[in-house]
Design a protein around this nucleic acid. Structure first.
Lengths: 144, 144
DNA sequence: GCTTAAAATCATATGACCATGATAATAGGA
DNA sequence: TCCTATTATCATGGTCATATGATTTTAAGC
């Protein structure tokens, strides 16, 4: 019943943190992020490495190095981050997984379950890292 | 990203199966259910045992025994089944788990995430086993 | 009582997720 | 060239979800 794995939450937390730090351009080191968010350092390192392989982050080694967002936060959808760190199982058609309960011969729960699924999927696809910034407004109104 | 654990799905499948078999009164053996649904027998046995301890099912041993629904399917909400087989973690307020993003200082994603959470919770609380029966109609209209 | 059908329980295994600590590779700057 | 900061990688371990197979307990029917 936990909707997101711990790993996914770490990934979202870390990238949201990077989206917020405006110093330079969304750059931070593993050490910074790990201590700021209180997440295990080496584990986070591996997660960020995955995100870098996927192209969501860029990494540079050595002094002055670290990770940074490869694109502006507005262009990074949450689904991309989550799909990177956990293998995405194909969305289940019926919550029971039984074939006889399909769209053509549904139980009443079938439709309502799909609504829940769709809401989840839509959220992850429509929300970007920019939306996670504290005080961010979905519609772009930053006044008032 | 899988909304329900395998164990929860087994529990729902098995109880839905029992809700459907009208022979006598929603009774079945582990063996019947396991082979009908193709789920591991001993594992299912333990799940059904948990549901019996919780009072959702009754069990009788020996020849002619088996499991049966303790109450009519209309009175068994999906949430009760799921809570029995997996420890329910307290609903997470923020999808990032960060305290500063609360209801008072939310990011825009916060509200929309809560909507998704609420939709999920509402579904599990409002849906009963009877709703999972093939051809069941939420509003009770069985004609047309 | 004996046999048999069924749940209940016990022992064990596997893989994934979630880590921890140590080491290697890279690169900037003195 | 050496030191140091940083990512990258390696080895290892714990816990839990998900099983599998064997054994024990219960109870019905002959």
């Amino acid at each position: 019943m936990t909707l997101l794995s711990q790993t996914s939450r770490y990934a979202l937390q870390a990238t949201a943190y990077m989206a917020e730090c405006e110093d330079g351009a969304h750059r931070a080191t593993v050490g910074d992020i790990a201590s700021a968010l209180g997440v295990p350092r080496n584990y986070l390192s591996k997660i960020l490495h995955q995100l870098a392989k996927r192209g969501i982050l860029t990494s540079t080694r050595g002094p002055g190095g670290g990770f940074r967002l490869a694109t502006p936060p507005e262009q990074i959808r949450l689904i991309e981050i989550i799909e990177t760190v956990e293998p995405r199982p194909a969305a289940r058609e019926c919550l029971l997984g039984r074939p006889v309960c399909s769209d053509t011969t549904p139980c009443s729960a079938h439709d309502r379950w799909r609504e829940v699924n769709d809401a989840m999927t839509r959220f992850l696809e429509e929300t970007t890292l920019a939306d996670l910034a504290i005080g961010a407004r979905r519609d772009g109104r930053d006044d008032v």
